[in-house]
Design a protein around this nucleic acid. Structure first.
Length: 281
DNA sequence: ATTGGAACCTGGTGGC
DNA sequence: TGCCACCAGGTTCCAA
């Protein structure tokens, strides 16, 4: 389940094996991803060198000499560098084969990911509307607070909105809200600036920790098994439904927020809670 | 414009 | 044991 830390770790992992490599072949075994992969466009990549690998939110952008390609890992995708001769497994959909005999292999069992060739990735509709990067200075308390004033959704929904801030998925949204002592359904325009300050702080802290730990989990992208490397991170709430809160020993509860499993501690996360919301569970 | 919900897909799990 | 229903996950798109 790639969230921002997994995507960033993937970027760092494939970078040394892909940068400055020349693309010899693009092998599309299954074009049926989120959007169909157009073979005419992938052919246009042949002969070009990869000049940069960037991340924007959960998108990876590979800049070549004249074109770029954008990869999103969806919910089950992964990238690894393998010998081009390695037999493809069932869900190995695309190989970018380099002239040095290695291949950048895109695997995605659920096919929610995408592979898009484009001339100007930053102007692409998927990229250009993305909000601020959470680990930059542009993501600060006042920015979040301002965004909160313009809407009336629950705060969890707001921080998971990639047009506002990118890269906060379900796992880290749960964790950041717990750390901040904020109820996921707290209506965002009722939050104070200091609550926004706290939330911004914990989002940054949790993402940084996860990237750090991801770096130790995903060691070698050239290994034949190309492990996806989920973080063995210490999670306070996510996946702990029914277990006891580490802070107050109350049982953790599950609620649904925007069809998403959301785990909270009712004792530790009471802030900004409207009475009408409290009655709902 | 804002918000909620369906859709996309497959592997894993729990119930019968 | 097999079968079936359901769930997880990120994002876009459509409808209200």
């Amino acid at each position: 389940m790639p969230e921002l830390p997994e995507v960033e770790t993937t970027r760092q992992g494939v970078l040394p094996h892909s940068l400055h490599q020349q693309i010899q072949t693009v092998l599309v075994r299954n074009p049926k991803l989120r959007w169909p992969v157009d073979i005419r466009f992938t052919k246009a990549l042949l002969g070009q060198q990869i000049q940069a690998i960037r991340r924007r939110g959960k998108y990876l952008i590979f800049d070549c000499e004249y074109l770029s390609f954008i990869i999103h890992l969806g919910m089950s995708g992964r990238l690894c560098v393998v010998p081009a001769t390695k037999i493809a497994a069932k869900h190995d959909h695309i190989d970018i084969i380099f002239s040095n005999g290695k291949a950048l292999r895109f695997t995605d069992p659920r096919r929610f990911g995408c592979f898009i060739v484009t001339e100007n990735p930053d102007a692409h509709k998927l990229i250009k509307k993305l909000g601020v990067e959470p680990l930059t200075r542009n993501f600060h308390a006042h920015y979040l607070w301002q965004q909160c004033q313009r809407r009336q959704v629950g705060i969890k929904q707001l921080i998971m909105n990639s047009e506002i801030v990118v890269g906060v998925g379900n796992i880290y949204a749960n964790e950041a809200l717990f750390q901040s002592g904020l109820h996921p359904l707290a209506v965002c325009d009722t939050l104070s600036l200091s609550q926004c300050l706290r939330l911004v702080h914990y989002i940054k802290q949790i993402l940084r920790q996860a990237i750090k730990q991801g770096g130790t989990t995903l060691k070698d992208f050239t290994q034949s098994d190309g492990k996806p490397g989920y973080f063995q991170q210490f999670l306070y709430v996510y996946g702990r439904k029914g277990e006891l809160c580490y802070e107050c020993q109350s049982p953790l509860q599950e609620i649904r927020v925007s069809q998403r499993s959301t785990i909270i501690c009712k004792t530790c996360q009471p802030l900004g809670l409207e009475p009408s919301i409290k009655d709902n569970y």
